[in-house]
Deep mutational scan, measured.
Amino acid sequence: TFELKGKVGKVVKIAEDHYLVEVEGDKWIAYSDEKLSLGDRVMVVDVDGLKLKAKRIP
Results as ranks from 00 to 15, higher is better:
2 F>L: 15
2 F>E: 15
2 F>R: 15
3 E>C: 10
3 E>N: 03
4 L>Y: 03
4 L>K: 06
4 L>I: 14
4 L>S: 04
5 K>G: 09
5 K>A: 14
6 G>Y: 03
7 K>Y: 03
7 K>C: 09
9 G>N: 00
9 G>V: 07
9 G>H: 01
10 K>Q: 12
11 V>A: 02
11 V>I: 06
12 V>D: 04
12 V>W: 08
12 V>Q: 05
13 K>H: 10
14 I>R: 07
15 A>Q: 12
15 A>H: 13
15 A>G: 09
16 E>S: 12
16 E>N: 13
17 D>E: 11
17 D>V: 09
17 D>I: 10
17 D>P: 11
17 D>Y: 11
18 H>M: 13
18 H>D: 11
18 H>W: 10
19 Y>V: 06
19 Y>K: 01
19 Y>G: 01
20 L>H: 13
20 L>R: 04
24 E>H: 05
24 E>R: 03
25 G>I: 04
25 G>N: 08
25 G>R: 07
25 G>D: 07
26 D>F: 15
26 D>I: 14
27 K>R: 12
27 K>E: 10
28 W>Y: 14
29 I>V: 12
29 I>F: 14
29 I>A: 11
30 A>H: 01
30 A>S: 11
30 A>I: 04
31 Y>N: 11
32 S>F: 02
33 D>F: 08
34 E>C: 08
34 E>D: 15
36 L>V: 05
36 L>W: 13
36 L>C: 10
37 S>I: 13
37 S>M: 12
37 S>T: 12
38 L>M: 10
39 G>A: 11
39 G>Y: 13
39 G>V: 03
40 D>F: 05
40 D>R: 02
42 V>C: 07
42 V>Q: 00
43 M>G: 04
44 V>P: 01
44 V>A: 03
45 V>L: 06
45 V>A: 05
45 V>C: 08
46 D>S: 05
46 D>F: 03
47 V>C: 07
47 V>N: 05
47 V>R: 06
48 D>F: 13
48 D>W: 10
48 D>L: 09
49 G>D: 07
50 L>M: 14
50 L>N: 13
51 K>I: 13
52 L>T: 02
52 L>D: 00
53 K>H: 06
54 A>S: 03
56 R>A: 06
56 R>Q: 05
57 I>R: 03
57 I>N: 04
57 I>P: 03
57 I>Y: 10
57 I>D: 06
58 P>H: 12
58 P>C: 13
